[in-house]
Structure formats: structure tokens, C-alpha cells
Design a binder for these strands. Structure first.
Lengths: 331, 331
DNA sequence: TTGTAAGCGTTATCAT
DNA sequence: ATGATAACGCTTACAA
């Protein structure tokens, strides 16, 4: 910076003003400084700026891992919006490791705010972050520390989808997924039970637990379908699990949806290509990210004034049931 | 830090040493400082550290966009490895915008090194970054500025796949994809022509140009299949394009592979579920990322000594042709 | 082993 | 409109 300053015959203060876009600099000076900066190939140093301004122009995202279309889809929207708002995005996968609290706390010192997914961060850590004055937006999880929260609707759609299966005449529907793995899964499990209750029917007390992966879905589905009496429908907590269920049905020589109906969740691209095509629930992945980025940006800007005030908004985005062939409908 | 120092009855230098893991501090002092730090809830400030050490413990990745399984897959491996090596990952999508050079240059001041995908950064910018002493690793693109480079093999596999189609008796094979969009696509186009030449056959002088998306693939395939004489096989530059080709064939009432054979590239999850299942080429996505992260880390460590020296390694990862049904084989 | 003090490269306050 | 200069919060010789 001193180089540019002397090259342009001004002080570093002026260089800083020009490069920082401060309007109160004579136009001629601006041009001269800009020209000098170009000549020397000078760029402001990110770390020094961050230290002096207490602004990183960066937000952090904490998620479990990047496999599967879900997180990538959300982060796609997040990154795009953050960029448009002038912020870089620092990503951090917890990969189910134990020391992730430490990871999050460290990340917090490098960003202006963070987006926290599902179960990656326990409530008390959220509170601690809030206490430290780090703006936080929660994604796909219950609100905590009255932080702004973005989520997709689960319970009602799960209830409706279960009701749809019930309407097809199914009396034994198994829930395949792990309510303990994520708030989303938990809410779908709740909606599933809601529907049974509303129909005056009993539902299994326990889900067929499995992780959000095809292989796990296959195992769980196999287990369920070998039970006596076997379920005639499988409400899977994700499309990937549903794909495993298709495989399981095929192994047992059961036709879908004839002998067993199957539904998924997410509407990932393969859903339309499965045979029969998969009935599922679509959630607006990119928009979840977009909204989170926007809310975080707002919280950061507002943070200047340290508002606090009332518990922040919880935005619940609508999902859409996509009826195709695997539930027993014609489509 | 001063708070912790006085709380523990030491100087900030000692606090810094303890928190920075410097071994030459008496054990008792270490404990005392750690305890004080915990008591006050103190954490080192990222920006200040970065400024003082000239180390961000962060790497940057520049890619076109995050849609589709390709970039997410690579970044999955990248993030995991970088994390294991103690580095955060800053992501930046160019989204085909014009001002991306500026974006990259700015990012460069916030990271210790960067991974640059395909066509996101022109050769001269790569040189400039290298000139500024920013360690760089190139991904899925030709080497430039003799920077370490990681790529998947394309030309030979494309040639072999084309040869396979030729072996099925096809005499008019169209290439569907845009060689201009990425070095990968360009190399596949080259391999396609290699095979024709090797077989003593003429090949179209022009590809059926289209972007890496299903909708574009459909249009391009429609265009190709309506030509007279129509091609009897479509070598698509990606699986997503191939999916579009399936749709096009269906619209024209043409059977696959009977009336038109189709092949893809990437082996994305849907490939196995298409009907007929898609013959394609698998590339090790996560490993591309893993290797890039490792090479970058090495370059950063080496950078301490400012080696320069000989042009760095170009790692070409093997791909695997996955024969399934859409090429005309039984599978 | 620990402390003192000089940076690290900006921004921002106060003068001028 | 511009310039001095004191932060910003840490690391790291150099001393003790």
C-alpha cells in the first residue's frame, strides 16, 4: 500500500479510501491512485482488512457431509445468493465426527455469520454462538436461541402422503428411516403417525431405522418385508432409501406397487426414471439456501445495531407431493 | 487475550504460545492458561492470526456452478481431505459471469492457495496468481504456468467407447456435447475423432453442440436424429445430456438401443436406472478432489521454501468404461 | 521458561 | 480533500 501511495504521490490513507470506495476523494486523485494500483498490481489484503474492519465478508455453512443431492442443492442456492450479496462462503462438513463443536467455534472466528444445518450443532452451542454475537441462521432444524430459521414443511406432507397410501387401501405401512438422524426425518415420522391416528388406525410404534443411503434402505426394507405380516407399503424418509427399497423388493420377487407400494422424499432426478416412477415429496432445495443466505445477510447487517429484540422469524417453505407410479396410482 | 493473560497471571506472549501449541512452555503454565481461556470463553481471532502469520489455513476452490453431481462430487473429496489437513474451504462459483477474474483475485487474498476448475480461469490469470506467489492446483484442465494439475483421462476412453460403438456396426455416430465448454468435453471430442480415423472412417466435422444439461441434450439429440441420414448412435458428453437424448428418442418413437444407441459420461446414479441402463464412463470424482487438495497442501508447505523448480506433476486419473444396455450390449 | 515490544497491512479518527 | 497516526488482535524475535 505504501508503494502505491508513493507512486501516486498520496498517503496510504487516500489509497485506502480510493480502494475502499470512499466517495470523498477528488476524482482526479481517484484515477491517479487506481492507475498506480494497477501499475503495481496491488490488491488489498483480506486478513488485514478483516482485522481492521471486523468484517470478513464471508459466511460459514456447517453441514454433515456433501454426499447425495440434498446438501449440494441447498448449498448451490446459498452460494449463489451469498455471492450476489458480496459474501464468500466457507464450507465445513462435520462428517459425523465428535470434535465438530471445536470446528464450528473456530470457523466462527473467520466469518461474519453462519448457517447451521440440522443436527450438526447442538442447541447449547447455538446459544453460545449467539452469545458471542455471531449471527446465526438455522437450517432444517427446530429453532434455538431464537435465531432465524429456515425449513421445509415435513409433518403435514408426510401425513398427507401417508393418508394417500391409506386411501389406496393399505393397512400395514412401514416407515423406513431414522427419526433420530435429523429433525426432518423426525417430523416425517410424526406426520406418518398423525395420519394413522386421524384414520383411527394403529401404526407401528417403531420405524424401520436406517440411514439416508441406498444400501441402508435396502437392508431396512428387506427386514421389513420379511416380517410377518409384511407391510404392503413402505413410506421411505428419502428417495435414496426408496431406491434401496426397490432393490429389496426386486430381490424378494415382489412387484412395485402391486405387492408393495413405495414412496420417497426429495424428488431427486432419478425419481422420474425409476420403474415404476417414484411417488415422492419435492422440497425447494435451492430456495432453502437462498432464504438462509438472505436471512443471514440481514442478521449481519442488523447486527451493526445489535438489535436482539423478538425471536426471529421461522420460514417454513412449502413442499409438494409428487404422485407418480410407485404408490399405486396410474401415472 | 489480555484478559486471559491477566487472569492466568502471565503475558499475552505466553497465552499466544499456549494456544498456538508452542511446546516450550512449562506444563503448569499451560494448564493455568488453558483453564483461564476456558473460564473467559476465549478464542484466537482468525483475522488477526492470518495477518500475523500470513497463513489463513484456508484454501479456495473456483468452479463454474454447483448444479449436477459432478462438481459436488469433486468438492466432496476436496473438502474432506482439506479438513483432514487442517484447512477450511472457501468456495466460489463463477456462474459464467464476466467479472470472475476479479472474484478470483480477491479470493486469492483470503486463502493460502487455490484449486481452479476447467475454464473458470484463463491461462494468464493462472500465471498472474503464480507470479503473486499464490499456490495453485489446476483441475480438469490443461496445465498452465507449470502448476500441479489433476485430471481424469478422457481422450483414450472416448476413443475406446467410440470404437465399441463402431464395433456394434454403427456407421453414423454423432457427438453430442460442446467441445468449447470444457477441456474435458474437448478431449472426448478428440478421442471420438481418433477412433473414426483409426477405423478408417469419416466422422462428422462438427459436433452436435449443447451444454451439459438434460434440456439442451434433448434439443441437440432431436436435431441430430431428424437429420438425413440420421445417426444410429449418439456419443453424449455427459450422462445428463444422454438423459435428454433418451427423451428425444422417445419423442421420435425410436427405440434405444435398437434404432439409436446412446452412451453417456460420468456414471451418475441414475445411469443404472435408466431403461435401458446407460453405457457410460465412470470417473473418480471424489478422488479428483482428494488429489487436488493433497497437491495443493504440498505446494503450500513447499511454498515456505519458495522452490519453483521444474514444472509440477500432472496427475491423470484413470476412468472406466461401464458397459450396460444402451450401447446395444445385453447387460 | 517467560516477558517486552515490534511488526503484520488495513481502516478510521482527528487534524489540517 | 488529504495526511498523520493510533488502533485492530495476534505472533515472534530478542532479551532477560
Amino acid at each position: 500500500m505504501y508503494t502505491v501511495a508513493s507512486h501516486a504521490g498520496v498517503s496510504i490513507a487516500t489509497v485506502s479510501r480510493v480502494l475502499g470506495g470512499d466517495p470523498r476523494v477528488r476524482e482526479g486523485t481517484v484515477d491517479r491512485v487506481l492507475e498506480s494500483a494497477r501499475a503495481v498490481g496491488y490488491r488489498l489484503n483480506g486478513a488485514a482488512r478483516a482485522l481492521a474492519t471486523r468484517r470478513h465478508d464471508t459466511i460459514g455453512v456447517v453441514f454433515p457431509n456433501l454426499s447425495g443431492p440434498y446438501y449440494a442443492g441447498v448449498i448451490l442456492g446459498l452460494e449463489e445468493t451469498a455471492n450476489a450479496l458480496g459474501q464468500s462462503v466457507l464450507i465445513a462438513g462435520t462428517h459425523g465426527r465428535p470434535g465438530s463443536d471445536e470446528l464450528v467455534l473456530e470457523l466462527a472466528t473467520k466469518v461474519d455469520g453462519m448457517v447451521l444445518f440440522g443436527r450438526t450443532v447442538p442447541d447449547d452451542l447455538v446459544s453460545e454462538l449467539a452469545g458471542r454475537g455471531v449471527p446465526v441462521v438455522l437450517l432444517a432444524r427446530p429453532q434455538a436461541a431464537s435465531a432465524p430459521t429456515v425449513r421445509a414443511e415435513n409433518r403435514r406432507s408426510a401425513g398427507a402422503l401417508t393418508g394417500h397410501l391409506l386411501g389406496h387401501g393399505h393397512e400395514r405401512i412401514a416407515f423406513v428411516g431414522d427419526p433420530g438422524s435429523s429433525p426432518d426425518a423426525d417430523e416425517r415420522w410424526t406426520g406418518y403417525r398423525d395420519a394413522h391416528r386421524a384414520a383411527g388406525m394403529g401404526a407401528p410404534a417403531e420405524p424401520d431405522v436406517c440411514a439416508f443411503r441406498e444400501a441402508d434402505g435396502r437392508h431396512a426394507a428387506l427386514r421389513a418385508l420379511r416380517r410377518a405380516p409384511a407391510p404392503t407399503a413402505l413410506l421411505c424418509a428419502s428417495d435414496e432409501i426408496a431406491m434401496g427399497a426397490y432393490a429389496a423388493a426386486a430381490e424378494l420377487g415382489m412387484s412395485v406397487p402391486g405387492e408393495v407400494a413405495i414412496t420417497g422424499w426429495d424428488d431427486i432426478p432419478v425419481a422420474r426414471f425409476l420403474s415404476p416412477s417414484l411417488t415422492t415429496v419435492r422440497q425447494p432445495l435451492a430456495e432453502l439456501g437462498t432464504r438462509a443466505a438472505a436471512l443471514l445477510h440481514a442478521a449481519i447487517e442488523a447486527g451493526e445495531g445489535e438489535g436482539e429484540g423478538a425471536p426471529a422469524e421461522v420460514a417454513t417453505l412449502a413442499t409438494e407431493i409428487v404422485i407418480r407410479g410407485s404408490c399405486g396410482c396410474d401415472a
